[in-house]
Design a protein around this nucleic acid. Structure first.
Lengths: 147, 147
DNA sequence: CATTTAATAGGAATTATTCTTAATAAGGAA
DNA sequence: TTCCTTATTAAGAATAATTCCTATTAAATG
């Protein structure tokens, strides 16, 4: 069964299981914030999640939304589309290459293509507009941060 | 000749040419800010660039650094590693897929793999640490923004 | 039901980035 | 060269996103 056909209730069930596995409490806030992201296909931002959850939990705070989104991310229940780093960083190297981003310390490492490796642009991405740049982000925890 | 072997002076020469092509002025600030990014392989952030350029141009302002980095990006002279969007956005869809980010309006579009297409993780990216997630960012200007 | 403590609400604080406005200087013309 | 035009800049205020602080609440366990 793929994620697409999984119902929201099933997804929430797996969140609850995940919380249990990790010894985390199943709070209303956690469930409702996850529900909002999981039931939307428009990649909502924190403010959007806040506004929507507020309908069901009128006392929800911004801090809870941010904190919970970060913890859901740690749990691998949701993913950040962009903005993994706290601030913008720049690169003038025009050779085709990719980046390893450390989600802990924010360090950026260059990944230069090895023999035979190159990323292709997905054919169907052109339908969205004019492509200017393609970048593969490999996200993880760098060796320094693992110790 | 690849970018790697190109000297800083050559890179600055091509910046000047680019400015001329585009009718943009060749200012000290523009040159020094570019020099800083082009001569570093550590993907500096705006503050780092500011601190370093300040040694040569003590009156440089933060605003100029931000504005110039953005214009160098428009000119395709430098690239933003991350933080293309003004705020973080989230996704709970676990099916493997990629994202088209509109650099103008910030909209995010899902790119689902077509038949036969899949991104591979570059073999040599593992040496940097433990991989948690891989995301291909296709950056461009979406159809809405082109009109 | 009582206890423990993870999680939360509320709002202040912080950080990155952008805006505003007057002054400056690059590039073209005389 | 010198003068003009206007793109670019400096300075610092303003904004926007996110995080921190602290007292309070409520989930899970026994």
């Amino acid at each position: 069964m793929n994620q697409n056909t999984q119902s929201i209730d099933d997804k929430i069930e797996s969140l609850k299981q995940r919380c249990q596995e990790l010894g985390m409490r199943v709070t209303n806030q956690r469930v409702e914030i996850f529900r909002e992201v999981a039931s939307s296909c428009e990649h909502p931002d924190a403010e959007t999640v806040y506004e929507r959850v507020k309908h069901r939990l009128p006392n929800i705070s911004f801090d809870t939304v941010y904190r919970t989104l970060a913890s859901l991310e740690d749990m691998n229940m949701i993913f950040r589309v962009d903005n993994l780093l706290p601030k913008a960083r720049f690169d003038a190297d025009k050779r085709p290459h990719n980046h390893f981003l450390c989600i802990k310390c924010g360090e950026v490492y260059d990944i230069f293509p090895e023999d035979g490796y190159k990323i292709e642009i997905p054919e169907n991405s052109k339908k969205f507009g004019e492509i200017k740049d393609v970048n593969l982000q490999v996200r993880g925890i760098c060796n320094k941060c693992r110790h």
